[in-house]
């Protein structure tokens, strides 16, 4: 009888323990392990094809450079060692300024149509652009510097009111020679030819690699006015100003350039 009790108690305890182990099973060992984090960047590209056409107002298939909402900025380390000196160019455009077009234009508006570009999101071989800045339109917010030492330092001439100076002494141009996908991001790697005279006797053309970012097309509408679409292109690159004869020790060798171009189809 005692033995039976002993066995019964043991059986009860075994059953309880067994139940305990089963009930406490968290199935951790049965759950599949979460997949390892991927090092592969997530790259999603659409197939937007954006071209300026003739920039006819009202044609939504033709994209216009919205210059009022664009900027071309530069920055460099002050004396090559301290914080950034920054500025922007007040006058710039996206036109392939050939030698024949390198003139003084008496106008307050864009002297040339901003039509020298095309963007193809899925086929970078069809993407290209040209652009320019007027060097004497560099604006650091310090009038004494912008109209003074900057002029001589950069080898250009002072601003003439009402004139857009696209002559060889005052223009820096870029033109893409190659555009390809960046394998690590949604961006594009672009190779550009930068032509600038600086303080040299004649313009120098340097091949520079930069990064182009596409800010996708989006439809916007404000109030009761008609909806339209916008998109952006951002180009970043770096140049060595010593290549172009800039000797001022106020600026570093390296100048960073950032172009933020916004377009709309109004």
């Amino acid at each position: 009888m005692k033995l039976l009790k002993n066995h019964s108690l043991l059986l009860v305890l075994i059953l309880f323990s067994g139940y305990g182990y089963i009930a406490s099973c968290t199935h951790e060992s049965l759950s599949p392990l979460p997949s390892a984090a991927s090092n592969t960047p997530v790259i999603t590209r659409g197939n937007a094809v954006l071209v300026p056409g003739s920039m006819i107002v009202g044609d939504s298939t033709q994209w216009k450079l919205d210059k009022a909402h664009c900027n071309v900025m530069w920055s460099t380390n002050y004396v090559g060692a301290a914080g950034l000196l920054t500025g922007r160019f007040n006058q710039f455009g996206m036109h392939d300024v050939t030698d024949a077009k390198m003139l003084n234009y008496v106008t307050a508006a864009q002297p040339l149509l901003d039509t020298s570009w095309a963007f193809n999101e899925s086929d970078p071989t069809k993407t290209y652009f040209s652009g320019y800045v007027q060097i004497n339109q560099s604006n650091t917010g310090e009038p004494g510097r912008d109209g003074g030492c900057n002029i001589t330092t950069l080898g250009t001439v002072p601003i003439v009111a009402g004139t857009q100076n696209l002559t060889v002494t005052n223009i820096a141009k870029i033109r893409t020679t190659d555009v390809k996908f960046d394998p690590l991001s949604n961006d594009y790697i672009v190779t550009i030819n930068l032509s600038w005279k600086g303080t040299l006797a004649a313009p120098l053309t340097k091949s520079i690699v930069g990064r182009l970012k596409y800010i996708p097309k989006t439809k916007v509408q404000f109030g009761t006015s008609a909806a339209y679409s916008v998109f952006g292109l951002q180009l970043k690159f770096q140049l060595n100003c010593r290549d172009f004869g800039i000797t001022s020790t106020n600026v570093s060798d390296k100048i960073d350039i950032e172009c933020n171009m916004n377009f709309n189809n109004k």
Binding site: G20, Y21, A23, S24, C25, T26
Partner: peptide
């Protein structure tokens, strides 16, 4: 949550 039971066991 079976974590407490698992810990008890």
């Amino acid at each position: 949550d079976h974590s407490f039971q698992a810990n008890n066991m």
